[in-house]
Design a protein around this nucleic acid. Structure first.
Length: 281
DNA sequence: CTCCAGGGGTTCC
DNA sequence: GGAACCCATGGA
């Protein structure tokens, strides 16, 4: 049992259930079972402490990074709120949502699978992917397959996924990652536009999937319009419609992102797309 | 039976 | 460049 105490207001269920990850399952009686980078754990909050059952002490830095516990979210959210009263109401409603730092390849594949798809089926497909090609970690717990394993498959080998046309996209992603053509390290050294361009060389990765990977894996806040994650997070948390205080998110998000991008990129001019999206749509 | 769900590729103009 | 259409699944 690994105890992470400095959680800074983390809302575990909102964070794991908002749709930024598809590799955690809620357990009856509370808690979540999940896998990341070959580590299978059960997570639950014990008061303000994040308890990870099955995690090794040596993996403390890994999980602290995964849950972004080093981020000063209260300060970040305060900055969000300073930009908009309406946004502040939304942040107040779910202040504990955190953007995870998920392993790169897993995140890439999950969001390829997510295209034109719905969350329950995304989770079902990723579950079959892990169980079918991933290393068995414990009873009922399987690691995400490695790029090498996935890269060696043919589309027809992945029929068991029932992922449709996405199977060939997964293989292309695996091959490009396995060959080093696309890597987290390379992305980290690129500006937002170039990182997007590199990711979209993968078949089945367009601007949306690329943005999701850059945010949910690499925590590249600057590259993603806020609504990409918050709008969906809200939709996930409130399937029948967000409370009134949350609705402005959809309208204000783009404005906010533009402001945030400008504030957080001193030398950098928010890119054209962000500005354009803010105006249009 | 039809619609569509957290896109993107291809093929037109 | 943008619009139309296709892609496989499975749930509503």
């Amino acid at each position: 049992m690994l105890l992470l105490e400095n959680t800074r207001g983390l809302d575990l269920s909102a964070t794991l259930g908002c749709g930024q990850t598809f590799l955690w399952k809620p357990l009856e009686g509370g808690g979540w079972a999940g896998v990341a980078a070959g580590r299978a754990v059960t997570a639950r909050m014990e008061g303000a402490v994040l308890a990870l059952e099955g995690a090794k002490e040596a993996d403390r830095p890994f999980w602290e990074n995964y849950f972004a516990l080093d981020m000063d979210y209260p300060a970040l959210l305060a900055r969000f709120c300073a930009g908009s009263k309406r946004l502040a109401a939304c942040v107040e409603h779910r202040p504990g949502i955190r953007v995870l730092r998920q392993p790169f390849f897993e995140t890439l594949c999950c969001f390829i699978i997510s295209q034109n798809n719905n969350i329950p089926r995304i989770a079902a497909i990723t579950g079959r992917l892990c169980e079918g090609l991933g290393e068995k970690l414990a009873e009922g717990a399987y690691a995400f397959p490695t790029p090498q394993v996935l890269a060696a498959r043919q589309p027809e080998d992945l029929a068991f996924l029932r992922a449709g046309w996405r199977a060939e996209y997964l293989i292309d992603a695996a091959q490009k990652v396995a060959s080093g053509q696309v890597s987290e390290a390379a992305l980290a050294g690129l500006c937002d536009a170039d990182a997007r361009a590199l990711l979209t060389t993968i078949k089945g990765v367009g601007p949306k999937v690329a943005d999701c990977v850059l945010l949910y894996s690499l925590s590249r806040w600057s590259v993603v319009p806020m609504d990409v994650w918050m709008k969906r997070a809200m939709a996930r948390l409130f399937p029948r419609g967000a409370p009134a205080c949350c609705r402005p998110y959809q309208g204000i998000a783009q404005q906010f992102i533009f402001d945030y991008a400008r504030a957080s990129l001193p030398r950098g001019k928010a890119d054209k797309k962000t500005a354009k999206e803010r105006r249009g749509d």
